[in-house]
Nucleic acid binder design. Sequence first.
RNA 1: GACCGAGUAGCUCAGCUGGUAGAGCAACAGACUCUUAAUCUGUGGGUCCAGGGUUCGAUUCCCUGCUCGGUCACCA
Length: 573
Amino acid sequence: MSDQEIERRKSLEFLIQNNINPYPAEAYPVNVTAEEIKNNYDEQKNNYQDISIAGRMMSRRIMGKVSFIELQDHTGKIQVYIKRDTLCPGEDKSLYNTIFKKHFDIGDIIGVKGFVFITQTGEITIHATEIKMLAKAIRPLPIVKEKDGKVFDAFTDPEQRYRQRYLDLILNPKSRDVFIKRTKIVNSMRDFLNSKGYLEVETPILQPIYGGAAARPFVTHHNTLDIDLYLRIANELYLKRLIVGGLPAVYEFSKDFRNEGMDRFHNPEFTQMELYVAYKDYIWMMELVEQMVEYITKQLYGTTKVKVGENEIDFKAPWKRLTMYDAIKEFTGIDISNMNEDELRKTAKTLGIEVDETMGKGKLIDEIFGETVEPNLIQPTFIMDYPVEMSPLAKKHRSEPGLVERFEVIVNGKELANAYSELNDPIDQRKRFEEQLILAKRGDKEAMMLDEDFLQAIEYGMPPTAGLGIGIDRLTMLLTDSHSIQDVILFPQMKPDRTVFELNELVDKLQEAGVPSEWIKVFPQIGIKSLKALKNIKPGKLHQDLCGFNKKNKLNLTNPTLEEVEKWLEDLK
RNA sequence: GACCGAGUAGCUCAGCUGGUAGAGCAACAGACUCUUAAUCUGUGGGUCCAGGGUUCGAUUCCCUGCUCGGUCACCA
């Protein structure tokens, strides 16, 4: 424990001994927020003269008989003026002199009652008539200072920001803002879809057969049924079953799981919104997508223009539409629409793209597109008509052989959404699944499984349907100008910290060996933080270290005997 | 998965060619009744990520590991 933590625990004790509950149970009535005061206070009107507010004390300037603190609630910070003789009108000044000055700390959650005024330096401030401890913080908060919009000692370490998101939310208003925006984005998307009468549904996350996308799944096990289940990689096949069932339009905000690499665009669990509408096609869906995203952007910013990195992106509909072949032609000058596999391979090579013999026609086209076109599409663009080999769930193109009716939305060089005229021909669908099975046998770990139950469903007849998947994380990244997916997911996946794991393991073993808990706490402090460290230590040295630490730090613990220490080590083996 | 970079006080970071560490803020003691990165005086605080090696001696050099970041690869 650091000196500061020890000090705070002492303060905690002091409060308790002076009949001040550091964690009171009763509600604290709040009648105003920092933002409301700052926006609406008017010296002439003399409003906000009886306010009650609660929040976290973020900084403190003590000037003898007067102090200023910054109180932060969910809307922002406001300054509070604490004057000894206002707070303690009587003889007893201990609330100010002792309780507040000595035993309140930065990070404590407090309640303040008082009236608003403007200081000599012109800052809207609450003059406190009452302060109350609502929750004592016994761990010091990182200190961030600010002057004229410049931030000093900013809390920016990505590891801490993601592992301890609560600190990020307390200390970085921008981060808090991103997550508020994320919810607004989801809400306006839901409003948009509901206004059209579409039905929001829930489908299984645990699936006996995973499908609907090309990806490796997470596997889990159901004990009672004694079967393996997969965390869904998509919900497409379930939503389509609902279309078979006669629901005309269904959608779901779907947490999906993919057991693949992680980088700034990929988190193992992520969110997609999938939508299926009967009797529509992908042409119709393009209009819906551009309208929906335009609507969301307007709701969020009041404009369709958003700055993303160096670029200003305009989401105003309609968006540019290009077929995949035309897009490649536009960016390379090469028309690949009539090329066979060999010619495609040659073309790829001349463009400096690495190819190998296992790549089929579809894969080659995708590689060429990914290298030459995708990164260059900054403004929202529909890329239409993909090779059939890459899209086992999309309907064959109405006029172009070898292609399917599929589009992707590319924004800022990245895919944002993916949509098809859905394949509803059960014979063709079975054939496509079978082709996937062949790929799987050849070792493609992402090939789709044959879903017999799904095939059965569409054999009963599925109306022609347009389907869409849109990445909520990616959309949020775009609309909040976030560099990494971890900035738009509250608790992104992180590798567990090995040292924490080892420490827990050690504590468990020490408990088993009957070491008293007050002594267990000492072990890490004398440098023993893992079982490995304990194995190499001699009982005599351990005994010396423990007793020495006790004496040096005046813990006043009863020293164990050497025999006891020997027995602990014995029991650990 | 490959390569590169980072890990030092509660926080943000210095620390030269190896001699066991510094600053600001925070903390503690004191002064101060309108300050605002408050100020002024004084004090305490660190297995320099972990393990191993080279060395008389390692925070520093080398190797391995852990965690994070970046780039690329894989991947929607």
